[in-house]
Design a protein around this nucleic acid. Sequence first.
DNA 1: GTAACTGCAAAATATTTGCATCCTT
DNA 2: AAGGATGCAAATATTTTGCAGTTAC
Lengths: 137, 137
Amino acid sequence: MKTKLDILKQYGLSVTDSRKKILELFLNADGALAHADIEKNAAKNFDRVTVYRTLQTFVEKGIVHQIPTTDNSILYALCKQNCQQGHHHDDHVHFICSNCDKTICLDDVTIPQVKLPINFTKQQAAMVVTGVCEDCK
Amino acid sequence: MKTKLDILKQYGLSVTDSRKKILELFLNADGALAHADIEKNAAKNFDRVTVYRTLQTFVEKGIVHQIPTTDNSILYALCKQNCQQGHHHDDHVHFICSNCDKTICLDDVTIPQVKLPINFTKQQAAMVVTGVCEDCK
DNA sequence: GTAACTGCAAAATATTTGCATCCTT
DNA sequence: AAGGATGCAAATATTTTGCAGTTAC
């Protein structure tokens, strides 16, 4: 299993306290995190601005990806499987529980192909399913 | 074809200048609109706050729906087909052109079913495809 | 006439930027 | 030591709220 240090080094980032801490939050989280979640858990120790910059860096490097939601918030999630090495493939479905509000990466559920209208070219696809998760069932 | 007035009345909203104007923007738009787009085009005449409130009303009534995007902006789009009458079914795929940044409702492309892990219940699904649209091809 | 809608002002919140200092390598 | 990362302060931008005046029905 990869450690925080491995991941940071692998992406050519210097190892700092805030990056370690934030990465740890992701590794321990069972779902995706909103900026606010991270701030709540890390901002005791770090500046709000550092959270912004760290997340931005992680996204740029491909360590985390952003999940679009309808409710104006961006969620950030670590790809648990393929994405940590080499190129970033965010091809799984995200699930948002309407009860506990947790966002879960369904790493095993692949986004199905869709047939686009003629003259449309696909580069990426994202899919978010809302419903009730296994814990809230 | 439904007129602005028809639509507003159908949803039990009183007909005001700002609602007519904003609805017109949607009817003329070939894609989805960001809050900023609406503000740019309508805010000459209306207060910024009115745009917020009007959009909120439209979403509540089901006249427009929100499209999740990764880049922190909410997009609003009119459902061209089924959604205008009765209940709102936002079951089509959204397409974001990486060239012109336009967001298009692919009303004819239905979101495919996915098989969720056991004990997960689906309520809604959203799908966003990024790529190159027909105009930018 | 009444309820609903709008504009204005202002508060609350969120995000970005510059710069001096500190830390990693 | 050098480059990058952080913290602080402050500028910007975004969204929400209260209230008085106006408008639709």
